[in-house]
């Protein structure tokens, strides 16, 4: 186990280093000068030069890369070019929206998908199964931003149960915060739940054909008991893989949903930062997301081992 963790840890560090280099190079190739963007069309060339110097943009790329890496190693993410505030604080504020939203959506999608998968697997081939499969097909086909707009039109514009978007801040209370995240979480969760339910159903049906299920039935368990006690645990590996992928996607890929609900999350921050060429912010947020994705993959790997003791030997 320790050797396993050590190799995983090393490859994690290497992945991060390579990611940082790729991010930095890509962002430096993209045309556009943050100083010119901030000062606009009427600014004098010397004004732009003065700002570039203040931002450190007149330094060579290699020096800027090393300074950035060094800063990150010390926990200093740098200062945003446009906002002129420390990037770490900005990211922390945004994570306070994006992380709860991702967890909320993941909880919703898992809570819907697992029972749905069990239900369909138990009745495989029958009308109920066909119905669930059709519904999940629809769930996958509907783009989440379209569903989001529909939710806004029905629940915000027409019924006025929810605000059309925005986030009051956690200072306004947990309930107010959760309420603001409910429609976005539903919009994010629906397609994920559809995918997860299909994966769960397929994995369950496959395990139901295994010998140990026949043994379980033979020793007197009902179909339902065999399904929940034996099949579910053995079907968890593909389900966990998908949940892990979905969490990374929900954390990093909520940009469109954040725009539809104008939530101050990470996605909107990075979107805005790209258009303003606020490279320090883009680099740091992307690095953070890379870290999160790698970390989640790592945790999922560990979860495999916990769920399936057979993997410990490999």
């Amino acid at each position: 186990m320790i050797r396993y963790l050590a190799t995983r840890g090393l490859s994690l560090a290497l992945s991060l280093l390579v990611a940082s280099l790729v991010i930095f190079l890509v962002l430096n190739v993209v045309p556009g000068d943050p100083a010119r963007y901030m000062l606009g069309m009427n600014a004098r060339p010397d004004t732009v030069a003065a700002l570039r110097a203040e931002l450190g943009l007149d330094q060579p790329a290699a020096a800027r890369y090393l300074a950035w890496l060094g800063g990150m190693a010390r926990g200093d993410f740098g200062t945003s070019y446009t906002y002129r505030t420390p990037v770490a604080g900005m990211i922390l504020d945004r994570v306070g929206v994006s992380l709860p939203l991702a967890l909320y959506a993941l909880a919703l999608s898992t809570a819907i998908a697992i029972p749905l998968g069990l239900f369909a697997a138990a009745r495989r081939g029958r009308a109920a199964d066909t119905g669930v499969m059709a519904a999940t097909q629809l769930g996958i086909a509907v783009p989440n931003f379209w569903l989001a707009m529909l939710l806004v039109l029905v629940f915000a514009v027409r019924l006025r149960w929810f605000a059309a978007g925005g986030f009051p801040g956690w200072g306004a209370g947990i309930l107010a915060g959760m309420k603001a995240l409910t429609l976005p979480a539903i919009a994010l969760a629906a397609p994920q739940a559809a995918i997860l339910a299909r994966v769960a159903r397929a994995a369950l049906i496959e395990t139901l054909g295994e010998d140990f299920i026949r043994t379980a039935r033979a020793k007197g368990l009902t179909g339902g008991q065999a399904l929940t006690r034996h099949a579910l645990r053995n079907a968890m590996i593909p389900v966990l893989t998908i949940i892990g992928l979905q969490f990374s996607f929900l954390l990093a890929g909520a940009i469109i949903i954040e725009n539809v609900f104008f939530l101050p999350g990470l996605g909107r921050l990075v979107f805005q930062a790209i258009s303003q060429r606020d490279l320090v912010v883009v680099q740091s947020v992307v690095m953070l997301l890379v870290c999160a994705v790698i970390l989640v993959t790592f945790l999922v790997d560990i979860a495999y081992v916990l769920v399936d003791p057979r993997l410990r030997r490999t």
Binding site: M149, V152, A156, V157, A164, G166, N259, F262, Q272
Partner: peptide
């Protein structure tokens, strides 16, 4: 509110 559709919804919903 940068998204035009979201802006429309926010005005219609009274936000």
């Amino acid at each position: 509110i940068s998204d035009p559709t979201a802006a429309y919804a926010a005005v219609m919903a009274g936000d």
